[in-house]
Design a protein around this nucleic acid. Structure first.
Lengths: 298, 298
DNA sequence: CGAAACTGATAGACTGCGTCTATCGGAGCG
DNA sequence: CGCTCCGATAGACGCAGTCTATCAGTTTCG
């Protein structure tokens, strides 16, 4: 049983004439005749009544033509669906960012992306690194944007930019006197950090642990913004990634930011995707745009 | 684009595994692989993402699978539809009878037909000969039951039975004295007939015109029953086909019936259908049953 | 009433597609 | 580092779909 056979049948139903139906379907009349006979044999039912002057559908034939039409409609819809998705830069692209990047990166790049890839439907998600990687591997999302390095198994990645860490201090904190800060300067100060699961927490700890900074024991921020508020309230200091510094959410009152002395500790931010992805073209384009946007603004 | 390809695709969507999908569709793995690739090439879209451990559908792939499933459902429905109609003695059969036969023949045969062809859905209609033949030729009905001969163009027919004409008289009519009547005996009596269009009218006229019976000028009955009532009321005499005599509709009071002397004038009643009909088997069976029923009872 | 026209069926040949078996290449796993 | 699993590739084969040419049965018209 073949889709073409049903095309022939429907054409015959429309024209009531073998020759015209054949012309309509761009085959010879014997072909249509034979194929229709084959279909009738296969179904074990007479579909049309051949009459000297024209052809009339059987009762069963009529019922079957209804279904056949629906089938052909579906097939056309499939073709249309495929045609609309032929453009590799169209369709949905599911992209997840970690919480310490998303809110600060997106405002800087979304406008450019929309302009460069207007047909790309970006679906944005926010997950911490571990669940993000899990969803990525399972195919629930197409791209992850996170701190590199990413585990190499089945994944590819591309660095988008590096961002230095900065030190966020209460306005009247002694360290505000310095224009640049060295890691050792942090010794003895109380460090406020994000809760477990945020990679930024681990990165900050790695910077500070070498010089013996002690972490505030009874506090774990759930987001960078609350962390920022706590620092402004004078409860301690923290490290902020560069992109998060200028984000003008709420007021910056009570908060001072100082850069590290070169070479400043930094993290690499990149995009990660499956080797086997079908959206490589769109992803590469996306990476180019984001990289360009960040380096241009910095 | 082929239905099988979509079967492969759906199987792959279900199993997430080329080998298993191939087994499920009873082909080799390379076959399924090649056909799927062909489908992707044809549509110009990647449908599945081949991953080392299992396979995942593309976004487009998922959308297409939905349609593909619908298509396969339709095709299965078509097969089921055909299977249920494979029995030539099932399905609808549209049968029309002329008014002077239908009400008298049907009560004698319907029970037998239902018993012998329980799956045959009889659709019954009543038309005079001319419109009946028109509908028959156009395929709106499958069989006509009428007085023979039928015009031969594109039609076949089969005699079911012969029925003698009888003379219907008011109870106290002089002709009731005779046990059998000759055509000449009718001379000088007033003949009541059906309105134009009924073939029985023409048949009765043919019997009587040779002997110079005059028809009542201002009266045309619309049905045999009204005709019968008029005769019983003493307004004239008429000819009744044999089958209509014993039909016990209403009372027979005031009505006497006499047979013609042999050879009695008669009409042949038969079934008529298109040469090109697809229901020949059912029709032949039907004719056999009706013929048997009538000859058995007579 | 007979010839022409029209319609669908049949015959026979050819081509290409779908299918198979055998094998490869690559990735993950112990 | 070798084993295993999975999908892709190669090459051969056979049938199914298609074509052209022609037939057979009806209808139509001069």
């Amino acid at each position: 049983m073949n889709l073409k056979d049903f095309k022939y049948l429907v054409a015959l139903a429309d024209t009531g004439h073998f020759g015209k139906a054949a012309a309509k379907t761009f085959v010879s009349q014997p072909t249509l005749s034979a194929q229709l006979r084959k279909l009738e044999d296969y179904l074990g039912v007479k579909l049309v009544e051949r009459r000297p002057k024209n052809v009339r559908l059987t009762e069963v034939g009529r019922q079957i033509v209804v279904r056949a039409r629906r089938m052909l409609d579906e097939s056309n819809e499939i073709i249309a669906l495929a045609r609309n998705n032929t453009d590799p830069y169209s369709g949905k692209l599911k992209i997840a960012l970690i919480p310490t990047i998303g809110p600060y990166l997106l405002p800087r790049v979304m406008k450019r992306i929309r302009k460069a890839l207007p047909d790309l439907g970006l679906m944005l998600y926010e997950y911490q690194t571990e669940p993000l990687l899990k969803l990525l591997r399972e195919g629930d999302i197409d791209v992850g944007i996170m701190a590199l390095p990413a585990p190499p198994d089945g994944l590819l990645s591309c660095e988008l930019y590096q961002e230095d860490f900065t030190v966020a201090l209460p306005t009247h904190h002694p360290l505000t006197d310095k224009t640049t800060i060295k890691a050792q300067d942090l010794r003895g100060h109380t460090l406020l950090l994000l809760e477990d699961g945020h990679c930024l927490r681990d990165q900050a700890l790695e910077v500070c642990s070498r010089v013996g900074v002690r972490e505030s024991e009874d506090f774990r921020a759930t987001s960078l913004e609350t962390l920022r508020q706590m620092v402004a309230a004078g409860l301690g200091i923290t490290l902020l990634p560069e992109l998060a510094v200028d984000a003008g959410f709420g007021s910056q009152r009570g908060l001072a930011v100082r850069r590290f002395a070169k070479p400043a500790p930094a993290r690499r931010v990149g995009a990660v995707w499956r080797k086997s992805t079908t959206r490589a073209a769109a992803i590469h384009e996306l990476c180019g745009i984001i990289g360009q946007a960040i380096t241009a603004k910095t």
